[in-house]
Amino acid sequence: MSGLYSLAALCLLLAVLAGLVRILRGPTEADSMLAAQLFGTCGVAILLLLSKGLDWVVLQDIALVFALLAALAAVAFALRTWGGTER
């Protein structure tokens, strides 16, 4: 039964990998910023599934930190990398 969690996590991992193609190809810098969101959401889901499948509760806390860092990355991007010229 617990194999199903890992299988689901593997599917999500493949989805992230496919999404990375877009991020590598661009064409704008903002497209690479989508990576932060992709990892934010998919990464959290993968960690939660693994935490259940491997019975490793610590991964839930790592998922929490992932969610926080994804938000901070977007804010930093909008303010620093791209906000400079318009401010």
Binding site: T28, A30, M33, L34, A36, Q37, G40, T41, V44, L48, Q60, A63, L64, A67, L68, A70, A71, A73, A74, V75, F77, A78, W82, G83, T85, E86
Partner: peptide, 25 residues
């Protein structure tokens, strides 16, 4: 965790879209 991801992703969606719009994309 879900609530946090919800806030994080809608906020970063807004920020990325705004940055792109102000860059005249």
């Amino acid at each position: 965790i879900w609530l946090l991801v919800l806030i994080a992703s809608s906020a970063s969606c807004h920020l990325v879209a705004r940055a792109a719009l102000r860059r005249k994309i």
